[in-house]
Each structure stands twice: as structure tokens, then as C-alpha cells.
């Protein structure tokens, strides 16, 4: 493989990885504050997608549709917390996981019933499908936008988490919730805030996701939640930097198999990437950046 091909693939990894990283962060944040792997998180991506779809087919300009898509995902995330997860605040990991799984199925069927059971096309600004030539590299605007947006979101989030009181208390909570409670961090506020940020991240990732795939469908949330779940687990569930790292590792594994596998076994590239991930977990059962040991 030539240097320029490698460069090309690196850009792909960066662009795919930053989408995964955003998704994984949103999932990891909520896990951190309440031990919930929110399976319905993928549906936030779907909500963004459908908002954009419904607005753009009715002639609303793209930019406004994007803003509304992100806003609705954020509101939906907060509503999820209020309606479904607050009554389950101290439930076990398993109960919470099942509950969010049920919520995910409910939402998918609501989309099916209210919008359409079929996949719908959605067209973004024409610019995104064009490419830029930099030396030997051909880079699509989609990749550039994804990388820039991803990087910006990561930087903003880091600043927020390190610089603001709310962010610091959320990190404290994520790292050790019982300690955070002892320190008197208001559980309700922290959890609500985590869901808001999680919704925002899902919204931003959703815009990128939909722009890339160009379509929306009721069950489309499954792939994003799957990727986010995998990324957070390889990174080490409970660790925020781990979630970001996990996103890039997963993207790298996927692109790697797409590149090296011959065409005849191309359909198996995703299963191969998953196997690789499971192999990583075999050697690092707690993930790459395992959070601190459980206090006994």
C-alpha cells in the first residue's frame, strides 16, 4: 500500500472514529452518573434524522433543520430520563439495560407508526458529496466536516468538563458515584445534565450520521448504539477518555478489515472487526483504560 493510500485511510479512520467517539461519549456519560447503558440512545440519533427529514422535505433550510434536529434529540434525552429512568434510579444494571432496550423498541415502533416503516432518503447540502484534492489525497468535504465537528465537540466538552463546576461534579460522579453523593453533589441535577449533554452529543453525531448515510429509517438507531456500546466497552466502561479512544480503535478495526479483506469476503468485514474487539477484551477484560478498581 502506498503512503498516500495509507493517508487516505487514516483520514477515513479519523472521520469515522470521531463520529463513534461522540456517540460513545454520550453513552459513557450517562453510564457514569447512573450505571445505565442507555440502549435507547440510538433512537436519539433517529430523532435527529427524522426531524431533519421532515423539515427538509417541507422546505426548511438545511441549517435550521440541523439545529432543530440536535435540539429535539436533547429534549428527547431529557424526557427519557424523566419518564422512564427516574423511576428506576437505583435499579440494577440489568434492570436499567432492559428498560432502555424496551424503550428503544417502543420508540422504533412509534417511528414506524407515525412516519413510515420504510427507509426514506434525505439530501444534505451538495457540498458534502464533493471532494477536495490535497496533494495526492482526495478528501471528501463530508470527512472534513466530520473531523472538524468531532474535534470541536471533543474540545468543547473537555473544556466544559475540566473548567466548569457542573462539569467537574459530573466527572466526579462518573468516576465514583457513591463518593460524589457523599460530597453532596445533587444527584438530580447531575443526572439531568448528563442526559442533556448525552442528547446533544447524539444530536451532533446524528447529523453527521444522517448526512453520511443519506437516509433515515425507524430501526436506524441500532447501528449507532451498537458502535457506541462497543466503543465504550473497549475503552473501559466508566472512563470518558476511554470512550473516545474506544471510538477510534473501533473505527480503525473496521477500516482495517475493509482494506485488507478481499472483495469476496467483504461482507464479513464488520464481523471480523467485532471479533477483533472481543479478542481485545479477552486480553484486557476491563477495557483499554479501565476505570479505578471497585472500592470494597
Amino acid at each position: 500500500m502506498s503512503a498516500s493510500e495509507i493517508g487516505q485511510q487514516l483520514i477515513n479512520v479519523l472521520s469515522l472514529g470521531s463520529t463513534y467517539a461522540l456517540l460513545a461519549l454520550g453513552l459513557a456519560l450517562v453510564f457514569g452518573v447512573m450505571g445505565l447503558v442507555n440502549f435507547a440512545y440510538g433512537e436519539l440519533v433517529t430523532i435527529t434524522g427524522y426531524t431533519m427529514y421532515l423539515m427538509t422535505i417541507n422546505g426548511v433550510p438545511w441549517g435550521l433543520a440541523v439545529v432543530c434536529g440536535i435540539t429535539f434529540a436533547t429534549i428527547a434525552s431529557l424526557l427519557m430520563e424523566r419518564l422512564a429512568f427516574r423511576p428506576l434510579r437505583n435499579a440494577s444494571f440489568l434492570t436499567l439495560l432492559f428498560a432502555s432496550f424496551a424503550l428503544s423498541v417502543i420508540l422504533q415502533n412509534v417511528f414506524r407508526a407515525t412516519v413510515s416503516p420504510r427507509t426514506k432518503g434525505i439530501r444534505g447540502p451538495g457540498l458534502l458529496i464533493e471532494s477536495l484534492q490535497i496533494g495526492p489525497l482526495t478528501i471528501s468535504w463530508m470527512s472534513i466536516v466530520t473531523i472538524v465537528v468531532g474535534a470541536a465537540a471533543l474540545i468543547l466538552l473537555t473544556l466544559f468538563m475540566r473548567g466548569s463546576l457542573a462539569g467537574i461534579s459530573m466527572r466526579a460522579a462518573a468516576e465514583n458515584f457513591s463518593v460524589a453523593r457523599l460530597m453532596g453533589i445533587k444527584a438530580n441535577r447531575v443526572i439531568a445534565l448528563a442526559f442533556v449533554i448525552s442528547g446533544l452529543l447524539a444530536g451532533v453525531a446524528g447529523v453527521l450520521w444522517v448526512s453520511r448515510s443519506g437516509s433515515v429509517s425507524p430501526a436506524m438507531g441500532f447501528v449507532p448504539i451498537l458502535k457506541a456500546f462497543i466503543a465504550t466497552v473497549i475503552g473501559g466502561l466508566g472512563s470518558l477518555p476511554g470512550a473516545v479512544l474506544g471510538g477510534f480503535v473501533l473505527a480503525a478495526a473496521e477500516i482495517f478489515f475493509i482494506v485488507v479483506l478481499p472483495t469476496s469476503v467483504q461482507p464479513f468485514s464488520d464481523p471480523f472487526a467485532l471479533l477483533l474487539v472481543i479478542a481485545i477484551l479477552y486480553f484486557k477484560p476491563n477495557g483499554l483504560l479501565a476505570p479505578v478498581a471497585e472500592r470494597v
Binding site: 428506576l88 428498560a99 424496551a102 424503550l103 423498541v105 417502543i106 415502533n109 407508526a113 425507524p218
Partner: peptide, 18 residues
């Protein structure tokens, strides 16, 4: 309604969990 059975089942599951 399409997917009604699945939706109701999911709702029941959620209510049971709560």
C-alpha cells in the same frame, strides 16, 4: 398500526420493570 404488537409488548415490559 404497524408494529403494534411489539410496541405494546415493549410498553408492558417497561411498566413491569418500573
Amino acid at each position: 398500526i404497524s408494529g403494534l404488537a411489539q410496541m405494546i409488548l415493549a410498553l408492558i415490559t417497561l411498566l413491569i420493570l418500573i
